[in-house]
Design a protein around this nucleic acid. Structure first.
Length: 420
DNA sequence: CGTCCACAGGAATGACGGGCGG
DNA sequence: CCGCCCGTCATTCCTGTGGACG
């Protein structure tokens, strides 16, 4: 088979009609079981069409409950409608993901770009960016609806004073007006906010409950109708994907990912139907992907931490204290990897970020006279860690020897010891 | 009931590369 | 090209702390 055959067969899929409909960022035209949220958000924003500033809104709901899709859908419908019917005041809409744009500078820069102002992505002072944004809004007249997605991520990084600053901008940007839609999956976010921010941002709320399994089925079926070729899905595939998503807090994104990945697996298999078995494999593959991806993005120091934890776990010690971890880490680093090990303080931050990416857990414990420390343990299969680190030229040998040593360890119990 | 362990984690500071405006 | 400011990484110095031990 030559290349053109491969490309040819790939372009004539036996499974997918349009794979892009299953991508996570696709905003569908139909959002089943979200009619209520669509109408309430629409009602909240509708004053924009008659030239009034809509209230600020908080949109609550766990991941994969359709917050982002509904908000994007409603805001873009609002903008379309406004431009079509030539409203007295034009309406502009900007969607900003504050996890990707997680500094005040970048958020302000994105806000500026939403009304056509280009700001260099670094180099100016925050105050300067803000001034340009305000100036631009003042020079035109618009109702500017700004969506701040994953706003909890932003607040934990830059804090709510920034949010307060944004809400206060309204006083300076006349004749323009601005509304903020904050999207969060932290249900209790408002409780921890500065009361002033809370009162101005929390005028209106839209809550997104978890999807039930049967609702997820509807969503998947709706999407599958166009994404897959007729008859490409075994009848139990969609219910199975829905069941998995339902079990994980009613997460539609998760279900859709599974469905797409299962389709890809079936396609690679050369089959023309997706089976339940493909979904099983898709689940394992997706899990593996996120682990590999997060390990790949780590620095040498964090990788060594994982390696130490993997080694300990393979030897039956699944918990290390911060002190033990640091000692082993320092040992490896100074034995030829780098000149200087990081300090304990810095390592504490690395541990924290590893914990954030769910690779490890770190529980604060106090053992009286034994002191106060963290019990740190690997959350993933240690062989995965070793496998992922084996192609790091700096760690390959080390990772390999951990693996070999454990093999040897199993063969003749404890005859050899591999010292970290 | 105070001590004291083994850290946690905040604050201040600095080095550094990127990228502006002038 | 300079001076400035940015975000990021890292260090130094520091105060805080849950609970077993004495």
């Amino acid at each position: 088979m030559d290349l053109s055959d491969i490309f040819e067969s790939a372009s004539r899929s036996k499974i997918f009609a349009d794979r892009s409909l299953l991508r996570p960022d696709y905003v569908p035209l139909e959002l089943p079981h979200r009619e209520k949220m669509i109408t309430s958000l629409g009602r909240i924003l509708s004053p924009a069409l008659v030239g009034d500033r809509p209230s600020n809104v908080f949109v609550y709901g766990l991941t994969g409950t359709g917050k982002t899709a509904v908000t994007r859908y409603v805001t873009s419908a609002l903008a379309d409608h406004a431009s079509k019917m030539k409203t007295p005041v034009p309406v502009s809409v900007k969607y900003i993901n504050t996890r990707e744009n997680d500094t005040s500078y970048r958020v302000l820069a994105e806000m500026a770009s939403g009304i056509g102002i280009r700001v260099p992505f670094t180099g100016l002072s925050v105050a300067e960016v803000r001034a340009r944004l305000v100036g631009a809004l003042r020079s035109i007249t618009t109702i500017y609806v700004v969506v701040l997605d994953e706003i909890d991520a932003m607040i934990s990084r830059i804090g709510d004073p920034f949010l307060y600053q944004i809400t206060r901008m309204n006083e300076e940007i006349q004749p323009s007006q601005m509304s903020i839609i904050g999207i969060t999956n932290d249900i209790r976010l408002a409780d921890n906010l500065d009361p002033r921010v809370k009162s101005s941002l929390n005028d209106e709320q839209v809550f997104f409950p978890q999807y039930q399994a049967n609702e997820l089925q509807d969503i998947l079926a709706e999407r599958a109708k166009l994404a897959f070729l007729p008859g490409a899905l075994e009848p139990d595939v969609i219910p199975f994907c829905a069941a998995i998503g339902a079990r994980e807090h009613g997460d539609a994104r998760r279900s859709l990912d599974l469905l797409r990945r299962a389709g890809e697996i079936a396609e690679i298999r050369g089959a023309n139907r997706v089976q339940r078995q493909d979904v099983e494999e898709a689940r394992a593959a997706l899990e593996n992907d996120t682990i590999i991806d997060s390990i790949k993005s780590l620095t040498l120091d964090s990788r060594v931490l994982l390696l130490v934890l993997a080694n300990a776990k393979l030897r039956g010690k699944d918990k290390l204290t911060s002190g033990e971890l640091y000692a082993s880490y320092e040992n490896i680093i100074t034995n030829g990897l780098k000149d200087n090990a990081l300090t304990e303080r810095r390592l504490a931050d690395l541990v924290k970020s590893l914990e954030m990416s769910n690779l490890i857990t770190a529980n604060l414990v106090s053992e009286g006279r034994g002191g106060r420390t963290k019990h740190i343990s690997l959350q993933i299969d240690p062989s995965r860690v070793i496998q992922s680190l084996a192609d790091d030229p700096r760690l390959g040998d080390l990772a390999g020897s951990v693996g070999r040593d454990v093999l040897a360890h199993h063969e003749d119990c404890g005859a050899r010891r591999w010292i970290l």
